[in-house]
Amino acid sequence: MNPAPSVILFTTLSGLGFGLLAFLSAGLVEVHGLHAFFFWAAGYALAVGGLLLSTFHLGNPQRALLAFSQWRSSWLSREAVAAVATLLWLAPVALSQWLGFDWPPFWGLVGAILCAATIFTTSMIYAQLKTVPRWNTWITPVMFQSFALAGGAILAGQKPVALVALAALAVVQALVWRIGDGRFAQLGASIGTATGLGSIGTVRVFEQPHTSPNYLMREMIHVVGRKHAQKLRIITLLFAVVLPLMLLVLAPGGPTALLCAAALHLLGAITSRWLFFAQAEHVVGLYYGAR
């Protein structure tokens, strides 16, 4: 699949944003006044910024409001509804921490759950697709939650949680690759079943239907960069987990170290998400004898 920058940045930034918002909303971060304002502003900026970036992927973004209508059937629509509902729900919690008035704590706890639910809807946009076997597995939602949890914990300055979440993320990320690598074969789709001709003999492409790439090939048979997959996996683990972990353990606590750790982690998350797309193979490639 084509690793479009708008979609990679949308999923990583909004995931990080909702992760941070969940920690703030749950009341785990001791913040007041201007301090609280900056924390909440960062969370909102990441979440909203990510959502806005996703509109760059659209052919007709001026109709984006319609995307709130089909929540009964569509995960993409649910994602839009959940994101906006969560951001609205969190507003009084943010205001109460900033301006110092009381708001019932349960409201914040519900807000944290809503953050997790929003990240889940984002992950299901990909996990629901049977046509992309690498994504169509239970580990995809787990991976999205793990990244949000680890990134959110780092940004929220929750050192002990962050250390555990980063370690868990390493395990989940390794599982994602291990399970993902075998998914296409498990599905059992081949050029033989795609054409229905496999029962006659060995099928291979004799001639392509067109001489230059079309939308399908550009969007779904994107093979650039796969040969560096192994190296990029190591870079992912290094930046998303190892370096932030070392910074958190070795560096003296303080906003600079936390921001550095978060920035490194985000780089790792972006690399991981790039691989998530670049390595994903769509079954339509079978018709073209390419994956």
Binding site: M1, H57, L58, G59, N60, P61, R63, A64, L66, A67, L76, I125, Q128, L129, K130, T131, V132, A189, A194, N214, Y215, L216, E219, M220, H282, V283, V284, Y287
Partner: peptide, 23 residues
């Protein structure tokens, strides 16, 4: 149609193509 392309991703048969001019 907002041209998000998700339906083309969901189709196994490559039956849908996003028009580059109309979006």
């Amino acid at each position: 149609c907002i041209g998000c392309g998700l339906c083309a991703w969901a189709c196994p048969y490559g039956a849908r193509e996003l028009d580059a001019a109309a979006g």
